[in-house]
Simulated scan of single mutants.
Amino acid sequence: MTESPENPNPQNPNPNSPRTDASSLSAFGASRRNVLFGAAAGAAFLSGCTSNESNDGKDAEAGQANVADDKPGKRVTIGFAGPQADHGWLNAINEQAKERAKKYKDVTLEATEGSNDNAQQVGQIETLINKKVDVLVILPADGKALTQVGLKAMRAGIPVVNLDRVFASQQAYRCWIGGDNYGMGLNAGRYIGEKLKDKKNAKVVELAGIDNLELTRERTEGFDDALKNYPNIKKVARQAAEFTVESGQSKMAQLLRAEPKFDALWNHDDDQGVGAERAIKQAGRDDFLMVGGAGSKRVMEAIKADNSVIKATVLYPPTMAASAIDLARALGQSKGVGGLAEFEIPASITLYSAVVTRLNVDEYLPTGFK
């Protein structure tokens, strides 16, 4: 496939293939369709998760690991602890985990209510540890602040699947799975760069997330690095919002007042993008293209309709929670994953930040969150 403005990855001529750099397993070399593993995507990158049967030694004869599959096997109790679902993406994380667990007859899910208070979340996780769950899946409100409770679980012999916001120590988890914040910014910048590469003195603006979060800084760094490949493009303004509708509206209004003319906007988060779009409509502006972030259903539907400034969104798939359940199930049954020569589950799995445009939106629409 030849490069086109719809391909945000100039270094990867096939936009249907996941990134394969050393820092990312990208669903172990699967196709882009399988990168979005999980309940909403309709497929797990793991082959499933649980038979205790040895398949009469056929796997060993073939030189394969004892991998998980869909057959019911040893029962596993998975403790799930995440932050409060006060955001569309976080709510989708919770739903993905719960729905995935329901698919397995051998899984019991013990889920906490979720909290953004570090002390309260620590208490919830300690309760799960005291219940002696087999495996823990934890999306910490603050990875650094909750590292000690991750260490406590691991020392108690409970393997931890660290979801997205990483603990400060690798000793606090057995496996980490999450999104690629730097890659998210990189691909947003590449998409915009390809769209504006022939425009002289092009200008872009950025509506970022919460600035004291490492993920926000990584998204901005990736975006800036991508734009370095397009000398005709200059980022003329940046505002940090708070991943809320209200902050998106107020900060976008400030950007519009400060910059009466620009060609593209990258917004880090589709939820705060609701507010950004309100400000754009109130200002009567439609002279630029907008790229969103995370992959909400609302934004994907707008991309498909092609009747607004929104032309693309860069995924940060909440399906990672469904895959975390797959991993936890496999860990609880001492299984590996299909498609790998290694016997053990990897220590780190980074998802690919695909760009959704009108050309591929139908493929990704089922994964969009509300």
Rank of each mutant, 00 (worst) to 15 (best):
V355F: 11
R155N: 13
R190L: 10
T220V: 13
L351H: 07
P366A: 10
L90H: 03
A68I: 05
T350G: 05
G209K: 11
F28P: 00
I78R: 13
E110T: 04
S54E: 13
L359G: 03
S4V: 08
D69V: 15
K370A: 14
D117Y: 09
S23V: 09
D270V: 07
A172Q: 01
K251Q: 14
E246L: 14
L365I: 15
T350S: 02
Y316G: 02
S17T: 10
A44L: 15
G338H: 09
L255H: 06
N360H: 11
S250P: 04
F45E: 01
T350Y: 02
S24C: 09
Q333G: 04
M184L: 15
L109Y: 01
R100S: 08
A81G: 13
P318N: 05
C49F: 10
S4C: 03
W176A: 00
N55F: 15
V309C: 06
N91I: 14
I78L: 14
A188Q: 10
Y173P: 03
I93G: 00
K197Y: 04
G183M: 13
G292P: 13
L256A: 02
M184Y: 09
V76F: 02
G57L: 05
G63F: 09
I125Y: 06
D287L: 05
A324Y: 11
I210N: 06
N181E: 15
D180F: 11
N94A: 05
A321G: 05
A141K: 06
E194N: 12
R100G: 05
K311R: 14
N34G: 01
S308A: 04
G284Y: 10
M154W: 07
R190N: 08
K103M: 06
A330G: 03
I93D: 05
K74V: 13
Q282C: 00
M290N: 02
P366W: 13
F343T: 04
M1A: 03
V274Q: 03
S169A: 13
K195I: 11
G332M: 08
Q96Y: 10
V361K: 01
G79R: 14
D56F: 13
D70F: 15
V236C: 07
G57W: 09
A305Q: 12
P72F: 14
A156R: 13
L359K: 15
S54P: 08
A62D: 07
G79Q: 12
G189R: 05
E206Q: 10
P13I: 08
L46H: 04
S51P: 04
P8Q: 00
T108I: 09
V205I: 15
I325A: 00
D59I: 07
G57P: 10
S247R: 07
I210L: 10
A258T: 13
K199I: 11
L213F: 14
I158T: 11
T112N: 00
R257S: 14
P72L: 13
D106E: 03
A60K: 15
A92Y: 11
T108A: 02
K132Q: 15
P13N: 00
L331R: 02
F262H: 00
